[in-house]
Nucleic acid binder design. Sequence first.
DNA 1: ATGCCGGCTCAGC
DNA 2: GGCTGAGCCGGCA
Length: 98
Amino acid sequence: MARSELLEQIYTIVAQIPAGRVTTYGRVAQMTEGATPRMVGSAMRHLPDGHDLPWHRVINASRRVTEHGGAVRQRERLRAEGVVFDSKGRVRSDLLWP
DNA sequence: ATGCCGGCTCAGC
DNA sequence: GGCTGAGCCGGCA
């Protein structure tokens, strides 16, 4: 599977995540044909300008927003969509997208 | 080519 | 659940 195709698949999948729901890098990776969680993270990091992808709806396997440059913005966006975090910063498990 | 750094995950404690 | 230590592998200098 060509990397460009995997990238396409990743974008397509992320675009499917409904507002107010989240999923993990690992889940997205499994839905593709061979991408690894790190590739998904990398794909989110290097998103092209003008993208309309809900990148903020992708979190890590422990249901937290990984610390990185845009982590604060990411949490803001999620909160704005009604995503609830518990006291430890973990999102409610029932908000996970299959 | 080489080396280092990631928006990760999983197994083992 | 939390902490640690591999694996893994594309991107970029």
